[in-house]
Amino acid sequence: MGSTDLEQVYDRIYRYACLRLRDAHLAEDVTQETFLRYLNSGKAGGGYEIRYMYAIARNLCADVSRRRRRGPLQGVSDGAGEDATDAALEGIAVRAALEGMADADRELLLLRYVNGESVGTLAALYGCSRFAIYRRLRRAREAFRRSWGGEDV
């Protein structure tokens, strides 16, 4: 039984779903559905198994994405804030530095450096070795550095 801060777990799943779906409202729906499915799965003991929850959230996001057409990824430029013409984004913003990156790299950076997930958790989520995760993280950081270097700061 681990000590888990439920609100932080909610935030982590929510951010992940936001990035996948680019829609804050849908992301909250997915987050709450993730919690409910996790609790009903019988796997929930005293703590919350984050890797299992990410797996549930990933499947739910995939279901949602299949049901709607994905909009283009919007970046923030000159601190202008959200694009008011694209209601789907609802304030989700990524710097232009991330725009040119592959989805998988972007997602990895979020999970590792924003959500603070361990390499072990990421390896379990992506079904690969820890070594592979380290390699992918390095590649993602390089891609980000290249993109960031080209961005107007």
């Binding site: 609802e90 304030g91 450096y113 980000f144």
Partner: peptide
């Protein structure tokens, strides 16, 4: 990297 993401 952290600053590049922003969520409501």
């Amino acid at each position: 990297i952290r600053g590049a993401f922003s969520f409501p």
